[in-house]
């Protein structure tokens, strides 16, 4: 099944800080909820193991995450591929980074996820709302942590 999301996050930090944050995979990984472990491959790639709790669905997912910051376009692309519970998730997200002023930055994000396997076919009835919540949490965490820097 194909899922589409979008949202906005107002970050209490300057665009420079935000960019710095985004270019640090370790920091980005720390925004994933229930992160069990992360292995940084290089400055763009990492492998993260994440606990996912979607209602009765609870399990561990392993994701290959590729960060593709494009400062020229004021944009960051994220590609996530991985799976768990015999299921596969392919997600591409992008966030436009718009400096509002020196103190605030707007993350205008959107994402498309494709889910295959039992999580979609058995859990599909409840997946959409939950996945949305999950993604919102990631960006909310980002907003939070960027502000703290």
């Amino acid at each position: 099944m194909k899922l589409e999301y979008k949202g906005q996050e107002n970050v209490q930090a300057s665009p420079e800080k935000v960019w710095k944050f985004i270019q640090d995979p370790q920091k980005v990984a720390s925004c994933l909820p229930d992160l069990k472990s992360v292995e940084i491959k290089d400055d763009k790639n990492m492998v993260a193991t994440v606990g996912v709790a979607v209602g009765p669905v609870r399990g561990t997912f392993k994701f290959n995450i590729e960060l593709d910051p494009r400062p020229d376009e004021n944009k960051v692309m994220v590609r996530i591929r991985g799976g768990g519970l015999g299921s596969a998730v392919d997600l591409t997200a992008s966030a436009d980074i718009k400096g509002q002023d020196n103190q605030t930055t707007l993350l205008d994000w959107q994402g498309q996820a494709t889910v295959s396997g039992p999580a979609a076919t058995v859990g599909g009835r409840v997946l959409d709302a939950q996945a949305k919540r999950l993604i919102e949490t990631v960006f909310a965490n980002m907003g939070q942590k960027m502000s703290e820097v």
Partner: peptide, 24 residues
């Protein structure tokens, strides 16, 4: 804590566990 689930009737939980979508 969060690792535990209460088993009462189990009629939603057990099928989810059989699919290994729930692994308490």
């Amino acid at each position: 804590g969060a690792d535990a689930r209460v088993l009462a009737g189990g009629q939603s939980l057990i099928p989810a566990m059989r699919y290994r979508l729930a692994q308490p």
